[in-house]
């Protein structure tokens, strides 16, 4: 559970529960989708799972390791693509990548090779020496995704990764995500493109107002509700909640 404490303009404290009573497990190599309307608590859940926010209560484990007790080991495993752009604005594209690699203790040679390869993959090699401010919105998203991959994370968190990407690039990212999962990387993804979840995810969890409504494979969810697409399942479930 995550509860945010706030001090309002009148100085009084108020509290807001962002997510509560969520419990699930994700398998190694699985692509797991977390779906839910705006404000459902997806980002909050990811932030708790990536040690960016401390849960008010509850526990998170990776392969039996409690994330708080083994913070450093766990951080080595995680790759994080946040919902918002969070580059260092004073550094170039290449320097942002290098900073990430250094923060993950990669040697100089490995760093260079890996960064060149990833930038090439998302067609950003030409802008490697440009300041990140000069990138277009879609270029920034692409950079954000490959930055998280530099250190070869075992668990990848993607918080609305394909927002603002053109269809070609989106497909490319999908392919990349599938390849990673085949290599044994666990992928935890949120998206508002339900067809994206349908195409990628082995299982999806549907979240609304901080509560978990259901977890299952897209096929099972469709079967259960007798609806033709996951999108309709999603709409019906979250509609009822309102």
């Amino acid at each position: 559970m995550k509860r945010f404490g706030h001090r309002g303009k009148d100085g009084k404290r108020s509290e807001k529960t962002a997510v509560a009573g969520i419990s699930f497990s994700v398998k190694k190599g699985e692509i797991f989708g977390l779906l839910g309307p705006n404000g459902a608590g997806k980002t909050t859940t990811i932030r708790m799972m990536t040690l960016a926010a401390r849960p008010t209560s509850g526990e998170i484990r990776y392969e039996g390791l409690s994330i708080r007790e083994h913070a450093r080991e766990v951080k080595e495993l995680l790759g994080i693509v946040p919902q918002h752009i969070n580059f260092d604005q004073d550094l170039t594209v290449g320097e942002n990548m290098e900073l990430h690699a250094r923060l993950h203790h990669m040697g100089a040679a490995e760093r260079r090779a890996r960064i060149a390869k990833l930038l090439d993959y998302v067609e950003l090699s030409d802008v490697v020496n440009d300041g990140v401010r000069r990138l277009s919105g879609g270029m920034k998203r692409r950079l954000l995704i490959v930055r998280a991959l530099i250190h070869r994370p075992r668990i990848l968190f993607l918080d609305e990764p394909t927002v603002a990407l053109d269809p070609q690039v989106r497909r490319r990212i999908w392919d990349m995500v599938k390849d990673l999962a085949t290599e044994g990387v666990t992928v935890f993804l949120t998206t508002h493109y339900i067809e994206e979840a349908e195409a990628l995810c082995d299982r999806v969890a549907i979240l609304a107002k901080g509560r978990l409504l259901d977890i299952d494979t897209p096929a099972n969810l469709r079967a259960k509700t007798n609806l033709p697409t996951l999108e309709e399942v999603f709409l019906q479930m979250t509609e009822k909640k309102k």
Binding site: A52, R72, K75, E76, D88, H100, H104
Partner: peptide
């Protein structure tokens, strides 16, 4: 951009 440092090992 401090998030990079917070989430790094």
């Amino acid at each position: 951009s401090l998030e990079e440092y917070v989430s790094a090992p």
